[in-house]
């Protein structure tokens, strides 16, 4: 094919891609405007919930300070404090569910709905390539989900700091699963993975409702997998010595027990009978405080790698499969 004959079409294709880059974005924004609304409402609700939990904690604390529950007359202040703690835990559980909901309600319908209604045929016969259409379709929700997840992570940290100030419970440690999963950068990466998985399932299943259901199951499975793999992401520290618990700082205790006379380790929860675990030497296996952020980093990298793989698979499926 001569360069001369090819030139006009190449030119027009080039101008097409330049002309419609912002146009494509405008179109996708117009299509997904309800997503902005819902994301805004979710963020607002999360912040309001966090503020309410904090207020309840501080109020219960001051009541408890004024009337310490050591006297029976003040028992009620203790129960208020415990209620406020429970409310924070519900808040954390709700945030742990957020990735699942993002996968099912944002990710799964994103392309599945287009495939189900046939509107992808409309888009794929405009002057925009499949890959660019998909990129625009994905980039916007990814940005919205990231923003929402960052906001939720900050809200979780905000509530946790109030809980640590007001209660003596040790459930607010960074290593506790409800804290770890809603704190720092891991929840943001989890949300993005859920989105990517939802989109992939939608492209494979091509029907919205089944895709949503399968995404819920898949995302739950992935959370379980990451829960299981988490302790193995970094080397476990071991301490062997005399006496009881001696670890300093915020550690993640994985296992502790006694070292028996034959040198074997017996975790406390496997002691055959009371008294058999009384020996001088104990062992402790744990992650130390300084491993927290490296572990969050590694887990985030893994989550994002899975998200990238799911997205690559989405492109491949959409490129190959019939429309």
């Amino acid at each position: 094919m001569s360069a001369q004959s090819l030139a006009p079409s190449t030119d027009s294709a080039k101008s097409a891609s330049v002309a419609s880059r912002s146009g494509l974005l405008r179109t996708v924004v117009r299509r997904q405007r309800s997503l902005f609304l819902v994301a805004g409402l979710v963020l607002l609700a999360v912040v309001a919930w966090a503020a309410a939990d904090r207020a309840a904690l501080f109020k219960a604390r001051s009541q408890s300070d004024a009337c310490p529950p050591v006297s029976p007359a003040c028992d009620v202040t203790l129960s208020h404090l415990m209620d406020a703690e429970t409310a924070v835990q519900y808040f954390q559980y709700a945030l742990m569910l957020l990735p699942l909901l993002i996968g099912a309600f944002v990710g799964a319908p994103l392309i599945a709905q287009e495939l189900e209604r046939g509107t992808h045929r409309l888009m794929l016969t405009q002057s925009v390539s499949r890959a660019r259409w998909l990129t625009a379709q994905l980039a916007l929700p990814a940005a919205v989900v990231t923003t929402t997840a960052v906001g939720c992570s900050l809200a979780a940290a905000w509530v946790r700091s109030a809980a640590r100030q007001t209660t003596v419970q040790n459930v607010w440690g960074r290593w506790e699963t409800p804290v770890y999963s809603t704190f720092g950068i891991v929840p943001v990466a989890s949300a993005l993975l859920a989105l990517a998985v939802g989109v992939l399932v939608g492209v494979l299943v091509r029907r919205t409702l089944p895709a949503m259901g399968i995404t819920l199951v898949a995302c739950a499975g992935l959370s379980a997998f990451f829960y299981w793999i988490r302790p193995h992401l970094l080397p476990v520290r071991t301490w062997v010595g005399h006496g009881g618990f001696q670890l300093k700082g915020e550690v993640w205790m994985l296992q502790d027990g006694v070292v028996r006379k034959d040198g074997s380790w017996l975790p406390y929860d496997q002691c055959p009978a009371p008294g058999t675990c009384r020996t001088g030497t104990v062992f402790e296996q744990y992650h130390e405080a300084s491993q927290f952020w490296p572990m969050q980093g590694i887990e985030t990298a893994l989550l994002l790698a899975c998200a990238a793989a799911a997205t690559a698979a989405t492109y491949a499926v959409l490129r190959r499969r019939a429309c």
Partner: peptide, 9 residues
Amino acid sequence: RMGRDLNPG
């Protein structure tokens, strides 16, 4: 408007 946005011609 979508048609205008997605098609240079």
